[in-house]
Nucleic acid binder design. Sequence first.
DNA 1: CATCCCACAGCTGGATGCAAGATTGGTCTT
DNA 2: AAGACCAATCTTGCATCCAGCTGTGGGATG
Lengths: 230, 230
Amino acid sequence: MLSPEPAGQLAKSEEIVLALQRGILLGERPVGSWLRHEALAKEFDTSRTPVREALRALQSRGIVTIVKNRGARINGQSSQNVRELGEVRAELEGLAAALAAERINDDEIERMEAAWRDFDLESRTDDRGRRWAESNDQFHATILEASGNRQLYLSIQDIHGRLPPNTSYPAYAESTVLLRRNVNEHARVAEAIVSGDADLARELMKKHILGAVEAIIRAKGDSVFQENDV
Amino acid sequence: MLSPEPAGQLAKSEEIVLALQRGILLGERPVGSWLRHEALAKEFDTSRTPVREALRALQSRGIVTIVKNRGARINGQSSQNVRELGEVRAELEGLAAALAAERINDDEIERMEAAWRDFDLESRTDDRGRRWAESNDQFHATILEASGNRQLYLSIQDIHGRLPPNTSYPAYAESTVLLRRNVNEHARVAEAIVSGDADLARELMKKHILGAVEAIIRAKGDSVFQENDV
DNA sequence: CATCCCACAGCTGGATGCAAGATTGGTCTT
DNA sequence: AAGACCAATCTTGCATCCAGCTGTGGGATG
């Protein structure tokens, strides 16, 4: 699959990178908060050295900012930046959809369609957000895989790393209309890919991403992406 | 400008990252070679700790691979990967050109045109490669800046980091025909941008990048991107 | 002469020590 | 009472130390 590491023999610092990245993405670690060496070392049952290496790696990915002699804090994004990121991501995912339309195989078609086919709009609201997020991830990941371009995958990964935490699914969990439209868009994109229409697939995917970004920004308001505490 | 750091108060590890990245890009540090803690520590007049942090950062950018208990070595790229990277980069630079066509200001137009206007095709061959590289960088950097999308800039930076070292200008230094065509393409892209035709600018830029990538691969042959020693 | 094995040297990953910069809370001054 | 000042404390950045893994070369063995 597309997961970058088979795990098992990871260096301590790499474990910490993954754990922190996940925690940040899930919103467990709030934007703007500081990441302290000693605290993290204790939390991950190690010394400060691997923690420091992990923080450098996260800085390289644009996820945290290290201020000299002060420490590392989790990056926020202005709604402006989120919009700019959306613009870039739309372009790349559009490319992925276009490539996928030319190269997708039956197995990938099956997985892609499974991602939205049995999505149940009627399930409980609190669960719905998480389920949608999974389905959504699966859908986009499959298309990316079907594009056959690993560098494209890496670039989109990179963009995900720069995204503010926990943005998407709260917006959708609360609005059946938005959610239904989103699922519909997935279906239309999938259709275009399966029919082999690269240009259409690209256009639909681009519109899909740009629309989703705007929906999220509208739903959350500008302030949410920014730092909380100083 | 677009340079990421104002320098002056960089942490040791950040200096090392920049120096290594530059050295790798220039080909001074060959693809496939190992980066030893002790040697680098001596070279940068510091201890192994900042070196290790720098290597983690470079690994996060995909520039080196760290093998547990063995060390860090400089990544090569297969011609397949270079082609995939080109595909992604063409898309992003195409977007940049399209955005630039809608937002560019006079100062940026001046810098963009300056980048190719006074380019002298008749200069000595050995110098020509370097001059072309500068001119080329300036051209693309200005368009990127004119796009007004900083996230786009970051993504393209990221791709540059993944590119194998020293690829472009040797190919152009040796062929006046290729070089002339390249300069011509720049002119046509610039024209489209100045005239405000976003779609045309995007198409021309995409073709320009894709063509350049193919030229490079043809010129250098596949092997050059791979590791030399084991 | 080829192969296997093991000890040794080299190197990395992680832990700890220490000096210096940053923060904070209290005190003194006006 | 507001602000300047300063010392105690916290935290980082870098250096050093140690244990464990890896590759290698030489000698024993068939």
